[in-house]
Design a protein around this nucleic acid. Structure first.
Lengths: 386, 386
DNA sequence: CTGAAAGCGCTTACAG
DNA sequence: CTGAAAGCGCTTACAG
């Protein structure tokens, strides 16, 4: 029988598509049929002539075992290539007390449909791990209300959770929470956007710079001669919005590198209502009628799509973000051409699962799980999975 | 506490990115803290004043329970919103006999590096389920040897496996195997390409027609005026290769719909060596020097890339398939522009896991798990996960 | 430093 | 038609 050896230990593997990173390919070997009936703690104990409790101590490197027995047991473990049965492990741990995870997320509002997806992923993870003694407490905030964010951070600290998951929308307060976690040795996962240089369990989300860079590359492929490119930021807060700034940086970097910044026309609006956006666009298009491609730096791309539709311009290529119903509608119609997506549901799911694994199994967590940057068009959106 | 209700039952959930399909969003509700300590078979038995064995019978719809007790127990199950602990379930089943899965796959040869990835996914799944009583037996064949394929099919039938996973490279023999499985009630998963109209547990792989269609769409975005498009098939067997034919169909469909078939130049070669491919390309380019985009219908795109590099033409856009080292090299260099990928590792992993879940937990299997069609460029390949 | 025993929640012969 | 008991493989008080 042929198989590839790997460092297993991930029964609770969260995703087949993380194979690419976790899979440690070593060699193809021929396995000798091992008497799999005789492995397990029991068999080790039998061979070492000790009790199962002692074997357990050695396996988990707990104190209270003489070096001699320890060595003896370890030898047998090696010989048997012992792999713990994760099922049994977890079942036995069921009796332990409840662990509480604090999750700090933006509200799901009309304006920010986006956050529904990460929340769904978190909810899904929650239902899966609930019966194993984990509890998730939610703290929501309005993305335009820094004070609420601060208050929620305070509450989290007050409640002394066992693990924390946040989207670090406001940097100062986020850093305060991270320091708190560090001091209390509480693992903290950052999701969706990162704060560089901070200590945390890990970051789970996209590499935003490259997301902007990729957009520029797509623009380049679509750009015809003598055309200009419009980059549009639509958000109440632009200056403080880490995500937007990083994407813009990547986008500009590409233009500096391969094209020219002279091709770029910028449009910023902190009024996110449709009339405001449309008004600004109309104005700008008067001056710059050679625009061939528009890049919108976030999920608000449907506003621009609506405008393009209203003025009957479907010759302009439109690129934006996120698999939202409103965006998909325009994608189908051919008004939006490309949507970049970063699996928001998976981000939420994986973040919680990472905390779970870390807390319950002391699984080593690789820093920074960078989510793929997916390109969605009208021809492949049907098969996309958030 | 807020959470989304869903039909859970997928602790063994293979992927967070399958959320989009499996997640049944119903409503946001406020949960009353339930006394989670008192659910479980034991509690049900206590309330119904029966033994746990009887409760088990009802849960699994096994015969031998009076209608009266059955109803009583079911009422309590409803009331408690009982969810079985999948961990315990599986652990208890460990004592059952071994189940054998037969996997029929192309060899990993020099020529077909592609098949390494699905095999890795299968291997991964194997190591995860091995300790729960599953065994995977591999049957390999040379893609150019129909006779070997037939022989392996015969062997599989002889060995009477409990589950079957095949890539149906040769249709006749595949259909024979499917009939056998149907007769013996053995679940069979088709992977990577489908045979329409056949009974099987499910198909796991891409929608190949749309894969070709998507390629054409990308071509369209990149195509400049007066340029032509070359479509290249490189395979020993083209006429019988379902995958290639379907993609080509989709590709042509797009051109008929949105552009014109007159723009297309075709190149087929059943000699897959570099000199042969380069020779044919040289010849054709002499006649058709307006080619602006080349679409290669499979992973052999690196041969074309090598040729483009050798003649110093990096103005031609090149689109092909699969995340292979050789292809990624040319992607980085900017010679290949787009690679379409269909998560081959995940296909393998998910196929085995599906059989596992079906056999061990009688999980209902949705027909046809269609893998996303991913677009990879030099700007996002770093984050791709096979 | 070590072990006997009970427990995690579910399943399954076996006996009645 | 129903139940008592043992078992899946691991962990953990508790006792010594």
């Amino acid at each position: 029988m042929w198989f590839l050896r790997e460092s297993s230990e991930n029964f609770f593997n969260v995703s087949p598509d993380c194979l690419y990173l976790t899979f440690i390919y070593t060699e193809i070997i021929v396995e000798e049929k091992e008497d799999s009936l005789l492995s397990g703690v029991k068999e080790i104990a039998r061979r070492a002539k000790v009790s199962r409790a002692t074997v357990d101590r050695v396996i988990h490197n707990r104190p209270g075992v003489s070096l001699k027995t320890k060595n003896r047991i370890n030898a047998i473990i090696e010989e048997l290539e012992y792999q713990p049965n994760v099922l049994a492990q977890r079942l036995a741990l069921t009796s332990r007390g409840i662990l509480r995870l604090a999750v700090l997320l933006p509200d799901i509002s009309q304006e920010t449909e986006y956050w529904k997806a990460p929340l769904e992923g978190i909810n899904k993870a929650e239902t899966e791990i609930k019966q194993y003694g984990l509890q998730v407490d939610y703290y929501f905030f309005d993305q335009n209300e820094q004070a609420v964010f601060a208050e929620q951070v305070r509450l989290i600290m007050e409640n002394k959770p066992d693990g924390v998951l946040i989207t670090p929308t406001f940097e100062t307060e986020s850093i305060a929470l991270l320091s708190y976690c560090k001091a209390k040795k509480i693992p903290c996962v950052l999701m969706n956007s990162d704060i560089p240089g901070q200590q945390r369990l890990c970051y789970i989300g996209p590499e935003l710079f490259d997301s902007g860079y990729l957009s520029a590359q797509l623009v380049h492929y679509c750009l015809k001669e003598k055309q200009k490119v419009m980059i549009v930021n639509i958000a109440r807060e632009i200056e403080n919005n880490v995500a937007i700034l990083r994407k813009e940086e990547g986008f500009l970097a590409y233009f500096k590198e391969k094209l020219s910044e002279d091709l770029l026309v910028s449009l910023n609006t902190t009024d996110t209502s449709y009339p405001a956006v449309a008004g600004k666009l109309n104005e700008l298009l008067q001056e710059e009628y050679h625009v061939g491609v528009i890049y919108v730096t976030n999920s608000r791309v449907s506003l621009v799509a609506k405008w393009l539709e209203s003025i009957g311009r479907n010759d302009i290529i439109l690129i934006g973000y996120d698999y939202l119903d409103s965006n998909i509608e325009f994608l189908k119609k051919g008004i939006i051409d490309f949507l970049l997506c970063e699996k928001p549901q998976e981000q939420g799911y994986r973040s919680v699962m990472t905390l779970f694994q870390f807390l319950v199994f002391s699984t080593v967590v690789k820093e920074d799980y960078l989510i793929p940057i997916d390109i969605i068009t009208s021809a492949n959106y049907r098969y996309y999975r958030n």
